[in-house]
């Protein structure tokens, strides 16, 4: 039995293996931002309430403040830096679905995972998923418009 409270681990982030030395007590959010320079995931409540730190782990949205970095070994991690010109990013711009922008990466990651998993998501699914994120600027109408437009566009329907 070893007696270590920190370790060198490999994380697969945005389809790239990254080696990082972490304390076992480090959250994934902390490792991403402070050890790997990936500052897209935002620290908000650090308590799993606000969703600003949302990333995608094995296809599911996860609050990176609620996950230890050591728990993420062997999993596929996507951060907002790993998304480029996706449908949801385009619609966030088109619909002005941000104000101060702090919550935006978390919303985008959650919306992107939703679109991937449930391309036919109805209003109740959208509501259930998006309740996980808080926008202090209260720009919810525009965010809802963006996800609906992105879902419609993915199906070739007018947004």
């Amino acid at each position: 039995m070893h007696n270590h409270t920190s370790a060198e681990i490999t994380l697969n982030i945005n389809n790239e293996d990254r080696t990082v030395y972490v304390r076992n007590a480090d959250t994934l959010l902390y490792a991403l931002r402070e050890k790997l320079g990936l500052t897209g995931a935002k620290p908000g409540c650090l308590n799993g309430d606000c969703g600003a730190c949302t990333i995608i782990v094995d296809g599911d949205p996860m609050k990176s403040c609620l996950m230890l970095a050591v728990e993420a070994q062997g999993k596929s991690i996507i951060t907002v830096e790993g998304l480029q010109n996706t449908a949801i990013q385009t619609e966030f711009i088109d619909k002005f679905a941000f104000q101060c922008g702090y919550c935006t990466p978390g919303f985008i990651m959650n919306c992107h995972a939703l679109m991937t998993k449930y391309p036919d998501a109805d209003d109740s699914v959208i509501k259930d998923w998006l309740e996980s994120n808080i926008c202090r600027c209260t720009g919810y109408q525009e965010i809802e418009a963006a996800i609906k437009a992105a879902l419609a566009a993915a199906k070739g329907e007018p947004g």
Partner: peptide, 12 residues
Amino acid sequence: IVEIADHTARNK
């Protein structure tokens, strides 16, 4: 379950 925490938190 659907009323516990929120959807993303329930993934964990």
